[in-house]
Design a protein around this nucleic acid. Sequence first.
DNA 1: TGATTCAGACAGGACGCCCTGTCAATATGG
DNA 2: CCATATTGACAGGGCGTCCTGTCTGAATCA
Lengths: 205, 205
Amino acid sequence: MAVKEGSYRGVSADDRRADRRARLLDAALEVWGHDGGPPVTMTRICAKAGLTERYFYQSFDSLEAALIAVLDGIAEEIAERTVDALGSVDGSPTDRVRAGIGAFVRILTDDPRKGRVAIIESASLDALRPRRAELLRQFAELSAREAHELYGPQAWSDVEGQMAAMMFIGGVAELVTAWIDGTVAATPEDVVEAATHHFTMTAHR
Amino acid sequence: MAVKEGSYRGVSADDRRADRRARLLDAALEVWGHDGGPPVTMTRICAKAGLTERYFYQSFDSLEAALIAVLDGIAEEIAERTVDALGSVDGSPTDRVRAGIGAFVRILTDDPRKGRVAIIESASLDALRPRRAELLRQFAELSAREAHELYGPQAWSDVEGQMAAMMFIGGVAELVTAWIDGTVAATPEDVVEAATHHFTMTAHR
DNA sequence: TGATTCAGACAGGACGCCCTGTCAATATGG
DNA sequence: CCATATTGACAGGGCGTCCTGTCTGAATCA
């Protein structure tokens, strides 16, 4: 017999699988995160990745599974970078809020495909809406932690607070959406500043 | 020869066309505004309306055209009822804001299908996103008029104000979404109150 | 009654996506 | 060199939607 678990072109079987998976995720982001383009489909993702549908099923059970993986990757990135930003700032709570919001916004503006996917497109498919909500909620919770420091533990804790949090994240989402669409002529810094201001306004009551 | 432009079962040809169109619009709202159901399609709308695809094309050029008509109907209703509410309240500007927001919110909560369609589902299709944005912007403009009265003409006028308006309507949209999904346990009145409070908070600077 | 118009059912082709299967070319280790 | 593994290409069936065309039966008016 020949190869088993052996390497091929110098890389192990697992590495090749992981490589294909990464290529598919990249292609999915590219296809999915493009404005007004044709709908995301397995066929298109595979074409963009230069792989056959067969390999798609080796990595994902369905199209939705792949899209969820894309979204989860962005969520993970947001969580990491936001926590980093919050932890590396020594200034006032407001400064830390600005840093956290800045990390969040910048991920979505530096790569508009991620912004579009995380906020706009993920709201389209039923299966992804819960993930999108969780992604935003995770961001809101990090913000709420700062709200505690700023305004005491009662901020955003009761039902009224939940509604305030909903409006905050919805507002930021809409603002980022408008920025991606070019509806507002502002720099990402302006967006961060406006969102920060919005936060300090609404968290305080 | 027999009938031409004549009446059939007592109604004129135009009336019958209009009736079928109305039935199709109702069916479209019913199919479209249902949570997690199968995707909206001409076939399904026709089945729900009890009509054949043939008649669909007599009223609409495409599926998108029908959905746009549904959305425009809701937008029209919102505009009328919001203007009515603003005009029929003699109280303080804040009271009028509450009335306007109340009219807006109540249309979307009294018939959750309309809420779902206007805010959630219309964000899914590329062709409808501009309509949805306009629907929300129209609501924001009515609110901005009150913001003028409350806080002077500089409110929501410059770029910063545009961003504040974006965050306001996005926040209300997200809040209504959460209410429809059952994520927040609150009455429509609570939603109106929270949104009104949010408005007075963010319009003032 | 008879000619005409309407409503609704139905068939079927075109198209695209999903998914599986097969096949040839290539690379690898023995 | 040979057997095996991997890859990529491709075909094709199943399915649902879109869209058009045809057909039957019923209702209408002269």
